[in-house]
């Protein structure tokens, strides 16, 4: 009888271990899910949560008093990540700003983006590597919003170089982008590496660490639409 009980315990322990191992294997087998999820994330979530998951989306940067939307946290979420993604607002009346995705994304997309958010929480640097390798067409990203959130303070709403900070940044002042004739590759280079690395003013910050590649391209493309000659 007693032996038997010990036997049952052993069996239970063995089974638990097996299940845990399977779960672990499953997590690793989910790499394709995480890759897919990163893509869904960049297209659907980066507006608010930022392209690195740090809460620096254009919405969060521009809307006054927006809550912190960083997903890099080890705090226990209030609900399962999957439920937050699926039901958003409907879960809690306190925060209406988190949209529900259940009518908008396929079940497979919800699973994938949930796996990606979990990757952000569990292994942030791996999640960043995945983000950096996502092959997303720049047309899927709105360069205009990135410009508003990251560049307008210096270069101004129309690109004329008259943003708020131009009052304190002189010699050189932020470039008038409507008159710029820089070829696209050089625009991308100065945006990515910053002024200093290009032998220009260090007051032009480097954005390569802040933005993913597709964002750099889409904001560079947006700059060319600000050019006066181009508009004619």
């Amino acid at each position: 009888m007693i032996l038997n009980r010990v036997g049952t315990h052993r069996l239970a322990r063995f089974l638990t271990l097996t299940v845990l191992c399977l779960l672990f294997v499953n997590v690793n087998a989910n790499d394709t899910d995480v890759d897919h999820g990163a893509r869904v994330y960049l297209e659907r979530c980066a507006l608010c949560h930022g392209s690195k998951g740090l809460g620096e989306g254009p919405m969060a940067l521009l809307v006054h008093d927006y809550p912190n939307t960083s997903l890099k946290t080890t705090d226990d979420p209030s609900q399962s990540i999957r439920d937050i993604v699926k039901f958003g607002t409907t879960l809690s009346s306190s925060n209406e700003l988190s949209p529900p995705w259940r009518h908008e994304l396929e079940a497979s997309e919800i699973a994938a983006v949930t796996a990606f958010v979990e990757a952000l929480r569990n292994d942030f640097s791996r999640a960043q590597q995945i983000l950096a390798s996502v092959d997303i067409p720049p047309e899927r990203i709105d360069g205009r919003k990135i410009y508003r959130a990251r560049c307008e303070s210096c270069h101004g709403a129309t690109g004329a170089g008259d943003g708020r900070m131009s009052r304190i940044i002189k010699n050189p002042a932020p470039s008038d982008l409507t008159l710029s004739s820089l070829p696209l590759e050089e625009i991308i280079a100065i945006i990515s590496s910053g002024g200093k690395a290009m032998g220009r003013s260090e007051r032009m910050p480097p954005w390569g660490q802040e933005l993913v590649y597709a964002e750099l391209i889409s904001v560079a493309n947006y700059l060319t639409t600000l050019r006066i000659a181009e508009a004619e």
Partner: peptide, 21 residues
């Protein structure tokens, strides 16, 4: 019969009305 989340990031008005059914 599903949620919308109306917002604008334009210089003349920057707001997020949140998700509502």
């Amino acid at each position: 019969p599903f949620f919308h989340n109306v917002f604008s990031l334009s210089p003349a008005a920057t707001f997020d009305l949140g998700s509502y059914p």
